[in-house]
Design a protein around this nucleic acid. Sequence first.
DNA 1: GCCAAGGTTGGACCGCCGGTCCAATTGTGT
DNA 2: ACACAATTGGACCGGCGGTCCAACCTTGGC
Lengths: 227, 227
Amino acid sequence: MTNMTLPTSRNTRRSDALSRERIVEAAVEMLDTTGEGGLTVRALTAHLSTGRGAIYHHVANKEELLAAATDDIVVRVTAGAGDDEDPVRAIRALALGIFDAIDAHPWVGTQLSREPQQPAVFRIWTGVGTQLQRLGVSGPALADAGSALISYVLGAAAQYAAGARRVTSDADRTAYLETLAAQWAQHDPDPIVREAASQLQDHDDREQFLAGVDIFLAGVSATKTRR
Amino acid sequence: MTNMTLPTSRNTRRSDALSRERIVEAAVEMLDTTGEGGLTVRALTAHLSTGRGAIYHHVANKEELLAAATDDIVVRVTAGAGDDEDPVRAIRALALGIFDAIDAHPWVGTQLSREPQQPAVFRIWTGVGTQLQRLGVSGPALADAGSALISYVLGAAAQYAAGARRVTSDADRTAYLETLAAQWAQHDPDPIVREAASQLQDHDDREQFLAGVDIFLAGVSATKTRR
DNA sequence: GCCAAGGTTGGACCGCCGGTCCAATTGTGT
DNA sequence: ACACAATTGGACCGGCGGTCCAACCTTGGC
């Protein structure tokens, strides 16, 4: 009654085979162009000009699709990560690679920090851990340092991605930082505070991120053997 | 036609007034008991035994509701945060307070790292920034150090919250860490690696988090005036 | 004491989502 | 030539966030 399955010509087998790779590729493309909220299974079917079942035949669910897309990006980043002789340089390069990848694909930042057990995070762990070992960190200190670095990188990534997601021109950001400066000034009305606040306002995200990595590295070398 | 507005007795004014506070309070309660996914506006109306319009009369949308709930928790944490004489101890206490809050309310971790511009994050920034100043950090270094510390705390928070969200007993976690250890061992089959991996397996999340804070603090004091 | 006005409330409704299911349609092995 | 299994597409489902408005209840002016 309600189901009027049309006997029209349907299901002409597509010439371009639908594969998991093609689906992930299309997903990445849509995430890049329309943002995190823009990727819906429906839109994806439209983009691939196919039906729902076809997609769920290749991918279990949206979560897996997101993880696969994220991994797709992270693989490229971590590929040549351990190349540098100097482990410090290698770590900085790895971190910067992730930062730049998230700059290009903000959704990766959100995804990475949301699901710590996905393969992409695992990849990062391996890269970081290996370099930290080469730095001479070992034992419990290695677990602590690695976890700290990963948390920092993923945290900064998520923050930056969220900032990039909200368009908010510069007006919102400025307002936010001004309020922050005023708040601090209230606690401690020192001239230094104003300077700090102004420093906070015109900074380069990428440099600040790298500065954080350096703070961490300095902390590691200061803490290397302790605990 | 379709609309059969029943002339039954509706809208008997509730004795317990519905206020924004009551709504946020109920939201926190539901988030705690049913998890992040459990808070739907529908479920909330049911819990408050009211209708949809009533809620949207007090709160703009779900995002605002989540931000308000998060702020509600963070306020308690940051309230007595700057009490300690020693800024280092104050920062550690603040960080631990956030960690414990997220332990008790995992959804806070997710929410904090998702929306960096919400009041709750602002509160944390103020707390951290003030203490860093007392530590003698100033100028660009303050922005760098603050941002690094915040990123780390929020990143670790999100990771921990995500870990807590997935039940995954201990089996998954163990498997994950074992694979990680094997991967490392492949790169550098050193006995040290096995030790590191085993260290990674039986650690206390809270201690590891604090160790990370200490790494950053050590890094900050080593980098205090540079750049 | 009354009554008009306006703040508050509840639920029908809308468009959309992720996911399931199955009939229709092929390419392929025999 | 033919059946069979892999693949495909779209109808369908329950549920989501959000809008809208009629009905209600409180309040303030008189």
